[in-house]
Computed example of a mutant assay.
Amino acid sequence: MHVLLVLAHPLPESFAHSVARTVRERLEGQGHSVDLLDLYAEDFDPRLTEKERHGYFDDPYDTYAVGDLVARLQKAEALVLVFPQWWFNLPAVLKGFFDRVFAPGVAFRHDKAGGKIIPLLTNIRHFWAFTTTGSPWWVVKFYMGDPVRRQLRRGIAIFCNKNVDFRMLALHDMDRATDEKRRRHLERVEAALQKFR
């Protein structure tokens, strides 16, 4: 299977980079091909341009400015995201990736009969996310309602492919995580990826 692995963290020494390395090594060890898209290293501009917004309902939508990323997404059979949660949300660079690359004609098309969107990313069989939060799990889940999980699963993944396999694994309370806790989390990541088929 061909996997697009999207990493969204500015620090090369970050735990997110460790998770991404673990994901890549495990998937390649299982015989999958992995295309690493490090949004910061590739200097991705997350800002939706005026031209892109004006043309949002054009048919066809002009994806020229992000054409290389669109091609990489359309070539993939699985999408794996690695990112921290900041302010109970996606990093801006990852939000911009969805805004600009998950565009009409790529991830979905508009139903001209009435506002629905029709999924187009049927090439993506798996949509997985590996993330960290600075808050304890109960704050994320009960106080905030797990907004990132809801956004990715209900607001992006199933709108692009109704039958996609969505999973998310988070390390909570990251700011106080010991080396041992981080090591155990990497083991959880590896164990989860054994089910990746």
Score class of each variant (00 low, 15 high):
F108C: 09
L120M: 10
T122W: 08
R53N: 15
E50A: 14
K112V: 05
L48Y: 05
D59L: 11
E50H: 12
F83T: 00
W86E: 05
V101M: 11
A71N: 05
L90I: 01
A129K: 06
T49F: 04
A65W: 07
D59C: 15
H126W: 04
D62F: 12
I118G: 15
F102C: 03
F127V: 00
N89D: 15
H110N: 13
L73G: 13
P91F: 05
K51H: 12
Q85F: 01
Q85K: 11
A113M: 14
G96R: 00
I118C: 14
Q74S: 04
A113T: 14
P91K: 10
R109E: 07
T63L: 02
W87K: 12
L121R: 09
V106C: 15
A103L: 00
H126K: 14
E52L: 10
F108T: 10
D99K: 03
Y61R: 14
F108D: 06
G114Y: 01
A76K: 05
W86F: 05
F83K: 09
A65M: 04
G114C: 10
D68T: 11
A107R: 04
W87I: 02
P60A: 07
N123D: 04
K75F: 12
G105C: 06
P84F: 08
F102L: 01
Y64H: 14
G67P: 14
A65F: 02
L73F: 00
Q74V: 02
A71R: 11
F102E: 03
D59Y: 12
L48Q: 11
F102K: 01
L94R: 05
F88I: 08
E50F: 13
W87D: 03
G115Q: 05
G96V: 01
V70C: 10
V66R: 10
